[in-house]
């Protein structure tokens, strides 16, 4: 048995949690929300051509690895990232890093992780976790499987660890940069499936689901959207609340009441997302109230889009003044 001296803090989202934990291990104390914000983790994308369990991918966060890559770009932080073709090689490399007492982040497919709750073991391949010790052979076999899960977003044995992190970090420029990158994604993407445009696109499509797919399948699609939004790991409200927490923290650091207002506005947007999810859940359960309907949900989503557009426009302006 091998266990590293690693202080683990429970987190709401896997990737930002991993990033915060790895940085903290290297002596840079950072909260999860901060890591999420600096890493530019917020996103929206409706990508119907990628299927998860036969349902279209809706994502409320940046692609797996985005946060870590952004954080690795901070001067003074050195991150090693590796992908593998060969399973034995990948596991040997992991052992090697652990033997050198380096905690390692892995991308895995949750279906193969035995510790994962039964009800969440779907074929979803973008779960990040930290390995900071090992024990038991059985477990390692599952882990090897999980690291080489196939299907959409296959991890290909990806592992990463930090070799260096600064002890002190001036957060201000990095959080401005993080905010800028999120604003760019949300407002200025040329693709109609991404950002605020993506929310509106989803709204449009969602309104047509009952006619196109039939009631039952439409409800399944709807449930999937909500699952992606509220599943454990999102911090609730499709990461909007977590980002609002980051904005609040930034407001304190920068002494900036405008950010505080943005946080409040984003919270309102998150609440609207929740309103949508609650309505969707009632419809999925076939216990809809009289005012629940697909057109009502479309209106709700459009409201979310409008609110987020306003928040990120404001944030973009703020970031421009501070960069």
């Amino acid at each position: 048995m091998l266990l590293l001296d690693f202080l683990h803090t429970q987190s709401a989202h896997c990737e930002s949690g991993v990033a915060a934990n790895l940085l903290t291990h290297h002596g840079l104390n950072i909260s999860e929300a901060m890591a999420f914000g600096i890493g530019g983790g917020l996103f929206f994308g409706y990508l119907p051509f990628i299927r998860i369990n036969g349902l279209p991918l809706v994502t409320y966060r940046a692609a797996a690895g985005h946060i870590l890559r952004q954080i690795a770009g901070i001067p003074g932080v050195c991150m090693v990232e590796k992908k593998f073709r060969n399973r034995d090689e990948a596991m040997a490399e992991l052992d090697h890093a652990l033997a050198a007492s380096i905690p390692v982040g892995l991308q895995t497919g949750v279906f193969w992780l035995p510790y994962f709750p039964k009800a969440l073991r779907f074929h979803f391949n973008a779960h990040n976790l930290v390995v900071y010790g090992k024990e038991g052979n059985e477990y390692l076999i599952s882990l090897a499987r999980a690291r080489f899960a196939s299907g959409a977003l296959a991890p290909k044995g990806k592992m990463y660890y930090l070799t260096q992190a600064p002890a002190e970090l001036e957060l201000a420029p990095h959080l401005v940069r993080g905010i800028q990158s999120v604003c760019k994604m949300m407002l200025a993407s040329p693709f109609p499936l991404i950002g605020v445009k993506g929310i509106r696109f989803l709204a449009k499509r969602l309104g047509r689901w009952p006619q196109r797919l039939g009631r039952e399948k439409a409800d399944l699609h709807l449930g999937h959207v909500v699952r992606m939004q509220e599943e454990i790991g999102t911090g609730g409200g499709g990461f909007r609340f977590m980002y609002a927490a980051f904005l609040q923290e930034s407001a304190t650091i920068m002494q900036e009441p405008r950010l505080q207002e943005c946080a409040a506005a984003l919270t309102a947007a998150g609440d609207t997302w929740r309103e949508f999810a609650a309505m969707a859940a009632r419809i999925c359960k076939k216990r809809g109230r009289p005012e629940d309907s697909y057109p009502a949900m479309v209106a709700c989503l459009n409201r979310c889009g409008a609110m987020e557009e306003k928040v990120f426009a404001e944030l973009r302006q703020w970031a421009r003044q501070h960069s």
């Binding site: 929300a33 449930g223 509220e230 609730g236 859940a281 999925c284």
Partner: peptide, 20 residues
């Protein structure tokens, strides 16, 4: 103010999970 809170699970999540 936001705080990291354990044990908080929102009801509709279980509904849609159950559906899946």
């Amino acid at each position: 103010k936001y705080e990291l809170t354990p044990d908080f699970l929102w009801q509709p999540v279980s509904v849609v999970n159950h559906q899946a």
